[in-house]
Amino acid sequence: MATVTLKGNPFNTVGNLPANGSQAADFTLVANDLSSKSLSDFSGKKVVLNIFPSIDTGTCAQSVRQFNEEAAELDNTTVICVSRDLPFAQGRFCGAEGIENVVMLSDFRDGSFGQSYGLTFADGPLQGLHSRSVVVLNENGQVLYSEQVAETVDEPNYKAALTALLDA
Protein backbone atom coordinates (compact mmCIF):
# COMPACT_ATOMS: atom_id res chain seq x y z
CA MET A 1 0.00 0.00 0.00
CA ALA A 2 1.28 3.45 -0.90
CA THR A 3 0.22 6.78 0.57
CA VAL A 4 -0.30 9.85 -1.61
CA THR A 5 -1.91 13.17 -0.83
CA LEU A 6 -4.73 15.22 -2.27
CA LYS A 7 -4.22 18.88 -1.38
CA GLY A 8 -2.07 17.78 1.53
CA ASN A 9 -4.49 15.17 2.90
CA PRO A 10 -3.08 11.61 2.92
CA PHE A 11 -4.87 8.70 1.25
CA ASN A 12 -3.88 5.13 0.52
CA THR A 13 -3.74 3.08 -2.62
CA VAL A 14 -4.45 -0.66 -2.80
CA GLY A 15 -0.81 -1.56 -3.40
CA ASN A 16 2.40 -0.37 -4.99
CA LEU A 17 3.38 0.26 -8.59
CA PRO A 18 5.30 -2.48 -10.39
CA ALA A 19 9.00 -2.31 -9.57
CA ASN A 20 11.58 -1.27 -12.14
CA GLY A 21 12.87 -4.38 -13.89
CA SER A 22 9.66 -6.36 -13.31
CA GLN A 23 7.39 -7.65 -16.04
CA ALA A 24 4.27 -5.50 -16.46
CA ALA A 25 0.98 -7.27 -15.88
CA ASP A 26 -1.21 -7.70 -18.93
CA PHE A 27 -4.49 -5.80 -18.87
CA THR A 28 -7.75 -5.47 -20.71
CA LEU A 29 -9.04 -1.92 -21.09
CA VAL A 30 -11.75 -0.30 -23.19
CA ALA A 31 -10.99 1.91 -26.22
CA ASN A 32 -13.15 4.81 -27.37
CA ASP A 33 -14.94 2.54 -29.87
CA LEU A 34 -15.76 0.18 -26.94
CA SER A 35 -13.39 -2.51 -28.21
CA SER A 36 -11.05 -4.21 -25.78
CA LYS A 37 -7.31 -3.54 -25.83
CA SER A 38 -4.62 -5.39 -23.95
CA LEU A 39 -0.95 -4.79 -23.34
CA SER A 40 -0.19 -7.52 -25.87
CA ASP A 41 -1.79 -5.32 -28.57
CA PHE A 42 1.26 -3.05 -28.18
CA SER A 43 3.85 -5.83 -28.23
CA GLY A 44 7.16 -4.80 -29.76
CA LYS A 45 6.67 -1.13 -28.86
CA LYS A 46 7.85 0.91 -25.94
CA VAL A 47 4.84 1.99 -23.89
CA VAL A 48 4.24 4.96 -21.62
CA LEU A 49 1.25 4.45 -19.33
CA ASN A 50 -0.01 7.88 -18.28
CA ILE A 51 -2.52 7.07 -15.53
CA PHE A 52 -4.77 9.59 -13.80
CA PRO A 53 -8.03 10.01 -11.83
CA SER A 54 -10.21 11.84 -14.39
CA ILE A 55 -9.83 13.62 -17.71
CA ASP A 56 -12.19 16.30 -16.37
CA THR A 57 -9.58 17.83 -14.05
CA GLY A 58 -6.98 20.37 -15.08
CA THR A 59 -3.87 18.41 -14.13
CA CYS A 60 -5.12 15.20 -15.76
CA ALA A 61 -6.00 17.04 -18.95
CA GLN A 62 -2.58 18.73 -18.98
CA SER A 63 -0.79 15.39 -18.65
CA VAL A 64 -2.65 14.11 -21.73
CA ARG A 65 -1.80 17.28 -23.66
CA GLN A 66 1.86 17.10 -22.64
CA PHE A 67 2.30 13.42 -23.47
CA ASN A 68 0.39 13.96 -26.75
CA GLU A 69 2.95 16.61 -27.71
CA GLU A 70 5.92 14.50 -26.60
CA ALA A 71 4.61 11.30 -28.22
CA ALA A 72 4.68 12.85 -31.68
CA GLU A 73 8.48 12.76 -31.54
CA LEU A 74 9.03 9.28 -30.07
CA ASP A 75 10.10 6.34 -32.22
CA ASN A 76 8.45 2.95 -31.74
CA THR A 77 6.57 4.24 -28.69
CA THR A 78 2.91 4.35 -27.79
CA VAL A 79 1.56 6.57 -25.04
CA ILE A 80 -1.51 5.06 -23.41
CA CYS A 81 -3.60 7.33 -21.19
CA VAL A 82 -5.64 5.37 -18.63
CA SER A 83 -8.43 6.46 -16.33
CA ARG A 84 -11.78 5.18 -15.12
CA ASP A 85 -13.59 7.82 -17.20
CA LEU A 86 -16.11 6.51 -19.69
CA PRO A 87 -14.64 6.11 -23.19
CA PHE A 88 -17.17 8.71 -24.40
CA ALA A 89 -15.70 11.37 -22.08
CA GLN A 90 -12.18 10.47 -23.16
CA GLY A 91 -13.19 10.69 -26.83
CA ARG A 92 -14.97 14.01 -26.31
CA PHE A 93 -11.87 15.48 -24.66
CA CYS A 94 -9.53 14.28 -27.41
CA GLY A 95 -11.83 15.57 -30.13
CA ALA A 96 -12.16 18.99 -28.52
CA GLU A 97 -8.41 19.25 -27.87
CA GLY A 98 -7.15 17.78 -31.17
CA ILE A 99 -5.37 14.97 -29.31
CA GLU A 100 -4.13 12.43 -31.87
CA ASN A 101 -0.81 11.02 -30.65
CA VAL A 102 -1.95 9.06 -27.59
CA VAL A 103 -4.24 6.08 -27.10
CA MET A 104 -7.02 6.67 -24.58
CA LEU A 105 -8.16 3.57 -22.67
CA SER A 106 -10.68 3.20 -19.87
CA ASP A 107 -10.71 0.92 -16.83
CA PHE A 108 -14.39 1.67 -16.21
CA ARG A 109 -15.70 -1.90 -16.52
CA ASP A 110 -14.11 -3.53 -13.51
CA GLY A 111 -11.13 -1.50 -12.31
CA SER A 112 -8.85 -4.52 -12.68
CA PHE A 113 -6.03 -2.48 -14.22
CA GLY A 114 -5.86 -0.19 -11.19
CA GLN A 115 -6.00 -3.15 -8.84
CA SER A 116 -3.25 -5.14 -10.58
CA TYR A 117 -0.99 -2.10 -10.91
CA GLY A 118 -1.62 -1.19 -7.24
CA LEU A 119 -2.74 2.36 -7.92
CA THR A 120 -6.46 2.45 -7.15
CA PHE A 121 -7.32 4.79 -4.28
CA ALA A 122 -8.40 2.59 -1.36
CA ASP A 123 -9.94 5.45 0.62
CA GLY A 124 -10.65 9.19 0.52
CA PRO A 125 -12.78 11.27 -1.82
CA LEU A 126 -11.26 9.67 -4.93
CA GLN A 127 -11.76 6.11 -3.68
CA GLY A 128 -12.03 3.71 -6.62
CA LEU A 129 -10.25 6.06 -9.07
CA HIS A 130 -6.60 5.74 -10.10
CA SER A 131 -3.80 7.72 -8.50
CA ARG A 132 -1.70 9.82 -10.85
CA SER A 133 1.11 7.57 -12.04
CA VAL A 134 3.43 6.94 -14.96
CA VAL A 135 4.83 3.53 -15.89
CA VAL A 136 7.28 3.20 -18.78
CA LEU A 137 7.80 -0.19 -20.44
CA ASN A 138 10.34 -1.44 -22.94
CA GLU A 139 9.43 -3.42 -26.07
CA ASN A 140 9.19 -6.62 -24.02
CA GLY A 141 6.85 -5.21 -21.38
CA GLN A 142 9.54 -4.79 -18.74
CA VAL A 143 9.16 -1.80 -16.39
CA LEU A 144 11.87 0.80 -17.04
CA TYR A 145 10.45 3.57 -14.86
CA SER A 146 7.52 4.11 -12.55
CA GLU A 147 6.31 7.15 -10.66
CA GLN A 148 3.32 7.52 -8.40
CA VAL A 149 2.92 11.27 -8.03
CA ALA A 150 3.09 12.06 -4.31
CA GLU A 151 0.62 14.98 -4.47
CA THR A 152 -2.34 14.19 -6.71
CA VAL A 153 -2.77 17.76 -7.97
CA ASP A 154 0.85 17.83 -9.23
CA GLU A 155 1.91 16.79 -12.72
CA PRO A 156 4.15 13.77 -13.28
CA ASN A 157 7.85 14.10 -14.00
CA TYR A 158 7.62 14.06 -17.81
CA LYS A 159 11.36 14.47 -18.27
CA ALA A 160 12.23 11.45 -16.11
CA ALA A 161 9.70 9.26 -17.94
CA LEU A 162 10.97 10.31 -21.36
CA THR A 163 14.60 9.94 -20.30
CA ALA A 164 13.87 6.34 -19.28
CA LEU A 165 12.63 5.73 -22.84
CA LEU A 166 15.66 7.26 -24.44
CA ASP A 167 18.08 5.39 -22.17
CA ALA A 168 16.47 2.02 -22.98
Rank of each mutant, 00 (worst) to 15 (best):
R84N: 08
E100C: 00
N68E: 12
L74Y: 02
P87A: 09
C94L: 12
R92G: 13
A71Y: 09
V102W: 04
V82I: 15
G91H: 13
Q90I: 13
G95P: 04
F88Y: 14
Q66W: 00
G91C: 12
G91A: 15
Q62T: 15
I80R: 03
I99Y: 04
D75P: 10
S63E: 15
Q66M: 12
G95F: 08
Q66P: 00
T78R: 14
S63T: 14
F88P: 13
T57D: 06
A89C: 09
V79H: 13
E70D: 15
A61V: 01
G91K: 15
N76R: 01
N76I: 02
V64F: 01
Q62I: 09
A96G: 05
C81S: 15
M104G: 00
Q90N: 12
N68D: 15
V82R: 04
E97Q: 14
G91R: 15
G98M: 09
Q90V: 10
A96L: 14
R65F: 05
P87K: 05
V79D: 06
T57V: 06
M104A: 08
S106P: 01
E100T: 08
R65Y: 02
M104I: 01
F93Y: 11
R65V: 01
V103K: 00
P87F: 08
D85Y: 04
C94F: 15
Q90W: 09
R84E: 04
C94K: 12
G58L: 06
Q90P: 08
L86M: 14
F93A: 09
V79K: 08
N76E: 10
A72I: 03
A61G: 07
L86Q: 10
F93R: 06
R65Q: 02
V102G: 03
F67K: 05
F67C: 06
E73F: 10
F88A: 15
F67H: 03
L105R: 01
F88K: 11
N68V: 08
G95W: 07
L86C: 07
M104Q: 02
C94H: 14
D107K: 07
V82M: 10
N76Q: 07
E97R: 09
E73K: 03
G91T: 14
E73S: 09
E97D: 07
Q66H: 07
D56M: 11
A96D: 13
Q90L: 11
Q90M: 14
E69M: 00
S63A: 14
A72S: 05
E69K: 13
G98D: 03
D75C: 08
C60W: 04
L74N: 00
V64K: 08
V102R: 08
Q62F: 06
R92Y: 10
F93L: 11
V82G: 09
E97H: 07
G95R: 12
E70R: 12
T57M: 07
I80H: 10
L86H: 07
R84L: 09
N76W: 00
N68A: 09
S63R: 04
E73W: 01
N68Y: 11
A89H: 08
G95L: 05
E70F: 15
A71W: 10
S63I: 12
N76C: 01
F67S: 02
N76Y: 06
A96T: 12
P87E: 03
A96S: 13
V103A: 00
